[in-house]
Simulated assay, not measured.
Amino acid sequence: MMAMKTASDPPLLDQYGTLISQLREIPVTQCNDHNCEVIEDCELPLIDLGGLWSHNDDERKACVEAIARASSEWGFFQVVNHGISPELLREMRKEQVKVFQTSFEKKASCCLLNDSYRWGSPTATSLKHFSWSEAFHIPLTKISDEASYGEFITLREVLQKFSAAMSKLAWLLAGVLVENLGQSKEPLGKICNENTCFLRMNHYPKCPISPEIFGLVPHTDSDFLTILYQDQVGGLQLLKDSKWVAVKPNQDALIINIGDLFQAWSNNQYKSVEHKVMTNGRVERYSIAYFLCPSYGSLVGSCKEPSLYRKFTFGEYRKQIQEDVKRTGHKVGLPRFLL
């Protein structure tokens, strides 16, 4: 039986139905290549960040090495003892749910959170490019703007605390990764700051059609570093050794993944790995991501020579991605900038 649509749901079913009508096909699966197979749930490398504050040099060194190794071999890892209180995380989730449960009309038209509400994939011309999700993509510079919150007064204070805590953690980890390469944090600090970073609140409604529909299409992140706070529903999958693996949720951990810019900056020592979110027919899913980004005019280059990539600005990179997606339906990313 198909789930009843609620007033808070975006018209995802309508958009999906329109795509089916246009294409006159109902796929059994979204995957059509050798990367489709999903093997059993995996547990990402789990790193206790308490080692970074240890007075024992060997313990700190071991923690740095674990972070660097996971960034090279997986492109993903999870962290505990990360410094963000469980109380703040619970409060953030409570406020997030409250916003997404409001009516679709209000989310879409009341300029909430800097008018950053997005749903589905308006430009999708194929079912494999369609995302069954909704989100608010919020610049950190707009989080303090009282006019962006309307009736959601309590959300502002929680978001401010949450974004500050995530920013602190992002810089801690970025510093560790830069240090491991024998580089100074100063160049990275000059092009990334709180004025250039984003938070994205995600909601994946129950999908009554098929568990093979993407909640978020396969992609790599276009930033330096992403921190993800997810619930226990599951659905996140990543590409490991040419196989899709399902990430087993850990209620005590945050997930970290390397973005395209860190891969380029590290000259491919760290890996930006393709990942996706699959839908669930029985339960909805929530997550919040923090993106460590530079300004659009910032020049990104490899920290070592000979460089594998030509220098490019973040704005140039984003523009190329948008052009590729418009023309081909998918992101090409870093291969466009190889020397």
Rank of each mutant, 00 (worst) to 15 (best):
S266Y: 04
A246W: 04
Q232C: 11
A165P: 04
Y286D: 03
Q322R: 11
C110R: 10
L239E: 12
L225D: 11
L159D: 00
H275E: 11
V247C: 07
E95P: 01
C197G: 05
A3R: 12
Y290A: 01
G175D: 12
A165K: 09
P205T: 10
T279W: 02
S85Y: 04
L113C: 09
S72Y: 00
P11Q: 03
W74M: 12
L299V: 15
E105P: 03
L12A: 01
Q251I: 05
G182E: 12
F136C: 05
L292M: 13
C303T: 11
F262E: 00
K206I: 11
Y16M: 10
E151L: 05
P10M: 00
P11G: 04
E91K: 14
H129L: 02
Y16F: 15
D260F: 01
E323G: 00
A165V: 04
H137S: 14
A108N: 15
S116C: 01
I288C: 15
P294M: 09
K190V: 01
G150P: 09
K206V: 13
S272G: 05
I84P: 01
R156Y: 01
G215K: 02
D14F: 08
P205Q: 03
P211L: 07
P205A: 06
A66Q: 11
N268T: 11
E186I: 14
E134C: 07
T279Q: 02
G75L: 07
K240M: 07
D14Q: 14
E157A: 14
